[in-house]
Design a protein around this nucleic acid. Structure first.
Lengths: 189, 189, 189, 189
DNA sequence: TATGAATGAGCCTTCATTCAT
DNA sequence: CATGAATGAAGGCTCATTCAT
C-alpha cells in the first residue's frame, strides 16, 4: 500500500507544519519559553505529538526559525550585488536581521543565556548566518570601509543582544542602536 | 543588656551579608532567577531567613547590586572633572559600567527580560545610573561631541544588552562592542 | 480507533470519580480545607491530576456536593405536593437538608467561613437551594403559617450553622435544634 | 530585694495585659487563627514573650475571653432577679451571649471545628457558662415556660453556631435567628 | 503515529516554634 | 524574663515529560 504510506506521510508533514506555525505564533506572544501545552493547544494536537516531532524545546525553536534564518542568510549576497557599497549592504542586512530578531520575544535573551539546550539553534545560526555576515564584512574590509578586528560572529552576537527589547526599549530603539553600532564599525577615512 | 543586643544585631548583620554573598555567587552561576532554596543552601540558612530579610526577589537582587550601582553612579561626575573631554569621560564611565555588568552573569539579561518582579531593580538603575549617565551625555552634547537623539536610558540599556556574555562572546568582546557603539555615537565633526 | 478513545475516556472518568470519592472522604475527615496532596494520596493519583480536573479547590468541593445539592433542591416541590401543609413540607425538607449537611463534616463551617475561594459553592447553593427553600417559604407565607421577615437564604444559613456538629453536639442535637428553630418560625395562630 | 521582685512581677503583669489587649484586637480583625507574629507586633513584644505566657494558641484565646465569659456568666442570676419571667431573663441573657460571640470572628467556627487545641476554651465555657445557662433553663422549666429536653450545653452550642456570621449573614441575622430559636423553645401553653 | 491523562519534581511562600543572647 | 532571628515543615501551584491506548 505505497499510496497509504504516502498519505500518512503527507498527514505527518501537515501535522509538523501545523505545530511549527502554532509554535511561531506562541513564541511571538509568550516568548520561546512558552509552555509546550500552550503550543499543542494552539496547534490542535496533543503534547505527545510535539515531543515526537521535536524531542527538545531547542529542536522546536530551531525548526521554527530555520526558514527565516535561511532567508536572511540568502539576503546577504543579493544585497551585496544590489547596493552601492559593501557597507550599505551590511547596513541593510543588519536591518533585516534586526527585523527577524525583534519580534521573537526572548529569543535573543535565550541565545545569550548560554542555555545548553539551545546549542542547536546556536549552531544553526553559526553555520548559516555567520558566513552570510562574513561575506559582507569581508567585502567591507576589501573596500576599506570597516574598522579591523570585528568578526562576523561577534557582530551578530552584539546585534542579537541589542535586539532584546522591553517596555522602555522597543524595536525602534533597537534599530537605532544597531545603526549606531554599525556607524561605530565604519572606518573613518 | 545593650551588649547582648549588639551581638545579636551583629549576628543578624552577618547573616544578611552571608545571604547577599551567597545570592551574588548563585546569581553568577544561575542568573537572578535562581531558586531561593539554592541561595539559602549556599548561605547555610533556611529559606525563611531570606524571606525575612528580602521579602521579594527584587529586594534581594537590588540589595546585591545596590552598592556597586551607587559606586558606578558616583564615578560619573568625578570622571567628568578629571577627563580631557566629556566624551572621554563617557567612554571611561562606560568601561566601568561594563566592568560592573560583565561579571554579573544574568543581570543584563534580567534587566532586559522585562520581568515585572524586577521593577525595583529597574527603578534603582533608573534613579541612580540614568542621571549619572545623563550628566555625561549632556556634557557631551554641550561640547558638541555627541550625535543627537540618544537618551541615557536607551544607551544604558544598549550597553547592558551588549554585556550579556557567553562562551563565544566574552568580556573582551563586550568591551569592544560597547566601545564601537560609543564610537558610533560620537559626532563626526 | 473509537474504542480506544472510549476506553481512555472511561479511564479518565474513573479517575475523576476516584478523585471525587477520595475528596469526599477526606472532607469528612479533615474538612474542605484539607491539603490537596492528601486527597491525591487517598485517590492514588498525582496532585496534577486533581488540578487538571478541578483547577480550584472550590471546583472540587462543588463537584463533590453538586449531585446531593441537586437532589435536595428537587425534593422541595415534591414535598410541597405530598404534604398536608406547606409548613410540614418545609419541616421535612429541612430534615433532608440537615441530613445532607450533617454527614459532611466541615461543609457547614466552610460555608460559614466566608472563605473567598468557596464562592463557587456559595453560588451553587444560592442558585440551587435558595430557590427551593424559597418555594417552601412562600407557600408557608401564603398559608399564613410563617412569621414574616424570614428569608430563604438566612434560614438556610442558620440551618447550615446549626449542623456544625462536634463531640458533644451530634446529628441528633442538630436535628432537634433545627426543628426548634422552625418551630420558632411558625406563626402562632 | 523583695521590692525589685515586685517591680519585675508588675512589669510581667503589664506585659501579659498588653498581649491580651493586642490579641483581643487582632482576633476581632483577623479571627482567632491570626498569626502569632501579628499579635506580637500589635503588642509591641517579641513572639517569644507570647509563647512564654501562653504556650498554646488556645491558652491565649482562653485568656482573652475569660473575663468576658465570666461577666456573661455573672449576668444570668442578675437577669433572673430583675426580669418578669424566667424566659425573659433567658432571652436577655442570650442577647448578651450573642453580643459576645458575634464580634469574635471565627471563634464560633473554631469552637465548632472540634479543634483539639481549643479544649481549654471549650472547658472554660462548659464550666462557666453552662451552669449560668442551666440556671435560667431550670427556672424556665420550673415556671413551665420551656419545652422539655433542651440542655444548656446544646442550646449554647446552637446559639454559638448561629453566631457564625459572614458577608450575607450578619450580626442582625444572627440575633434574629437566635430569637427565633428561643421562640421555638418556648412552651406553647 | 497521535493522543492527552497522569505523574511528580520543583519552586514559591507562610508561619508556628525554638533558642541563643 | 524578653527578644526576635532563624529554622524548616507544610501546602499551593505549574509544567515538562512519559506512556498506555
Amino acid at each position: 500500500m505505497p499510496e497509504a504510506v504516502g498519505i500518512r506521510q503527507a498527514q505527518a508533514q501537515r501535522t509538523r507544519s501545523g505545530v511549527l506555525a502554532a509554535a511561531s505564533a506562541v513564541f511571538v506572544d509568550q516568548g520561546v519559553q512558552a509552555p509546550i501545552r500552550d503550543i499543542a493547544e494552539r496547534a490542535g494536537v496533543g503534547v505527545g505529538t510535539i515531543y515526537r516531532n521535536f524531542p527538545t524545546r531547542a529542536d522546536l525553536v530551531t525548526a521554527v526559525y530555520r526558514h527565516q534564518i535561511d532567508t536572511c542568510a540568502a539576503l546577504a549576497p543579493r544585497l551585496l550585488e544590489e547596493s552601492d557599497s559593501p557597507f550599505t549592504a551590511l547596513a541593510h542586512w543588519a536591518d533585516a536581521f534586526v527585523e527577524f530578531l525583534v519580534t521573537k520575544h526572548g529569543l535573543g535573551a535565550a541565545l545569550g543565556s548560554g542555555d545548553p539546550g539551545l546549542e542547536n539553534l546556536h549552531a544553526l545560526m553559526l553555520d548559516t548566518l555567520v558566513p552570510a555576515c562574513a561575506l559582507l564584512l569581508d567585502a567591507c574590509v576589501a573596500a576599506d570601509e570597516l574598522s579591523p578586528g570585528i568578526t562576523a560572529y561577534t557582530l551578530m552576537r552584539a546585534i542579537g543582544n541589542l535586539c532584546i527589547t522591553g517596555p522602555d526599549y522597543d524595536r525602534a530603539d533597537a534599530k537605532r542602536m544597531v545603526a549606531t553600532l554599525l556607524a561605530g564599525c565604519r572606518r573613518t577615512a
